[in-house]
Design a binder for these strands. Structure first.
Length: 541
RNA sequence: UGACCAAUGGUGUAAUGGUAGCACUACAGUUUUUGGUACUGUCUGUCUAGGUUCGAAUCCUGGUUGGUCAACCA
């Protein structure tokens, strides 16, 4: 049981909130969701599910200059894809009028004032964490003057940045957020939902807790950096005498060999270090989706990393483990040769083709079988043959035997080479008595290799991905460096492969395992005559 | 020279005063028509110094280390 569950169970025992649980996931629509958000989503929705409650989706759209509907749509899609359904969809901007009324109420009670100081002056008066701040000369304006000014702010009488509304709290507080925090700023900006109705916009601290309160949220779960905001969250709820949700903070997810900051991910996209937000190398949810991760694997990952308050860097190998674990159960097996070399069965009848049975998924009997065309000339992996083999290599070498999966046991006799010494063909003989299913096929051989028929395979593009960064913590930089300097210049390899001809856009599985190689999925760049596969993750070697 | 938060194997995370466990990683072995899967095993841990207690990873005090906070961002 994690510490959030402990808090919730304690609250239920004490019949707090009538023993109900209601959470929310509150993204700002200013970027795409990433694996860190996936963790938060799994916690927000997971806690409510576990305790019989519901979860709202609320867009924290209080800053019109950064936000856009493009992001709203992608966020909705990503949450659904992950497998969660929100009870209600809300927008902080839906509460602007209520928030405004509450602001007037605080002014009436002498708890808020309009400040004409410049940004620089306010910053200077706020002081530093180790030294108290000083009072603004506007701090003791009358209620009437404050009210008049605030109403004229709303009416649009003042230019951007000329005035702000501040809460009157404590300029001596060791917590910077309590030093008369700004509640409203003037922004003559077009909002993606409210249009030009408003020219003053509430700050996060003035909007978030009250939005939670309006929705009747019981447990407002967020990341650690908001811990210092909690006294302010509490202050507004108390000052307004409204329902007071409990803010609970947990440590955000960090993943080795990647970055998680929205700003930096945006930079990767804008500077074209990647193909887009959904580039399979990106830690975004849409990137992982395109990479071939299953929603289940991401949910398992979020469950496995746990929830605590200590800073962490999760090893990407755990994410990869979760991918393999789920993909092993659901991926359709197929034969694909990524680095082909021709194999010729010299004693196999010229022009003959026979069908062999192949299992679609050994982990799932219901997945059935399919027929594969076997013949005299096959493609096999170049790496499955070695001219000089050491003891640990037990695949094909001159004089040795291996099994061609679902077909025959073969023995290598000799090889052809070109002028440069590259192997152009591998000659073998087969034993007709060893066809899979026949009694003699049970003979022990050291290895089984995969193949595709030269005359039946189709060519496909395969995109292989390496880590986007070549250091575990790309944010750790030497003087004068940035995370950009840690980008792995070799993170994308595009190659041609031969795959079974049965796969096409009308007849494709969601997830494939290329036997003995790894997990792959069909990329959206595919067209009818040209399949593109993305490698999700290798099989464990 | 501030306040707040946190410290358990290489990485995460449990143990809520009573046998330090689990997962990943790494390495061995068994099974296998995928060098996959499954199964078994091995290695490695309570930041530090005191205190309370029959007994401390757990409670207390000091220290050390890491993180957060000084946007009209969220």
């Amino acid at each position: 049981m994690n510490f959030i569950e402990e808090i919730i169970e304690e609250d239920i025992r004490n019949n707090k909130n009538d023993a109900k649980v209601k959470t929310r996931f509150p993204p700002e629509p200013n970027g795409y969701l990433h694996i860190g958000h996936a963790k938060a989503i799994c916690i927000d929705f997971g806690m409510a599910q576990k305790y019989g409650g519901t979860t709202n989706l609320r867009f924290d759209d209080t800053n019109p200059v950064k936000e856009d509907v493009e992001y709203v749509d992608s966020i909705r899609e990503d949450i659904h894809w992950l497998g969660f359904q929100w009870a209600e969809e809300h927008y902080a901007s839906d509460y602007f009028e209520q928030l405004y009324q509450w602001a007037e109420q605080l002014i009436q009670e002498g708890l808020a004032y309009v400040d004409d100081s410049t940004q620089e002056e306010i910053s200077a008066m706020r002081g530093v964490p180790t030294k108290p701040g000083t009072h603004s000369p506007y701090r003791n304006r009358s209620v009437e003057e404050n009210l008049d000014l605030f109403r004229r702010m709303r009416a649009g009488e003042f230019p951007d940045g000329s005035k702000v509304l501040r809460a009157k709290i404590d300029m001596d507080s060791p917590n910077m957020h309590m030093r008369d925090p700004i509640m409203y700023r003037i922004l003559h900006a077009h909002h993606h939902r409210t249009g030009d109705k408003w020219c003053i916009y509430p700050m996060y601290d003035y909007a978030h807790g009250q939005s939670d309160s309006i929705e009747g949220i019981t447990h407002s779960i967020c990341t650690l950096e908001f811990e210092v905001h909690r006294p302010l969250y509490d202050w507004f709820c108390e000052a307004l005498k409204i329902h007071h949700p409990q803010q609970i903070e947990f440590a955000r997810l960090n993943l080795s060999y990647t970055i998680m900051s929205k700003r930096k991910l945006m930079q990767l996209v804008q500077e074209k270090h990647v193909m887009g937000w959904d580039d399979p190398r990106m830690p975004t949810i849409c990137g992982l989706r395109r990479r071939g991760y299953t929603p289940q694997s991401i949910r398992n990952f979020a469950e496995t990393v746990g929830v605590a308050k200590r800073d962490n860097i999760i090893d990407v190998s755990l994410l990869e483990f979760c991918a393999r674990e789920d993909l092993n159960k659901v991926a359709t097996r197929t034969m694909a040769v990524l680095d082909p070399v021709k194999l010729i069965i010299d004693n196999y009848p010229e022009g003959q083709t026979e069908e062999v049975d192949a299992v679609n998924n050994p982990e799932d009997p219901n997945a059935g079988t399919r027929k594969l065309p076997f013949g005299k000339e096959l493609w096999i992996e170049r790496a499955d043959f070695r001219e000089v083999a050491d003891k640990k290599f037990y695949r094909l070498t001159i004089g040795s035997e291996v099994r061609l999966k679902y077909a025959y046991i073969i023995k290598c006799t000799h090889i052809d080479k070109d002028a440069e010494g590259n192997i152009t063909a591998i000659h073998v003989t087969y034993d007709p008595e060893t066809k899979s299913g026949l009694p003699l096929s049970n003979r022990k051989v050291k290895a089984t290799i995969h193949w595709v028929n030269v005359n039946h395979a189709q060519e496909a593009e395969v995109r292989l991905f390496e880590r986007l960064f070549n250091v575990p913590d790309p944010d750790e930089c030497e003087e004068g460096q940035t995370f950009i300097d840690h980008i792995n210049p070799d993170s994308l390899h595009v190659t041609k492969a031969f795959v079974e001809e049965t796969i096409n856009l009308n007849n494709k599985a969601d997830y494939y395992q290329f036997e003995r190689t790894g997990y792959f999925c069909v990329d959206k760049d595919s067209t009818d005559g040209h399949l593109v596969f993305n490698k999700t993750v290798s099989l464990k070697q």
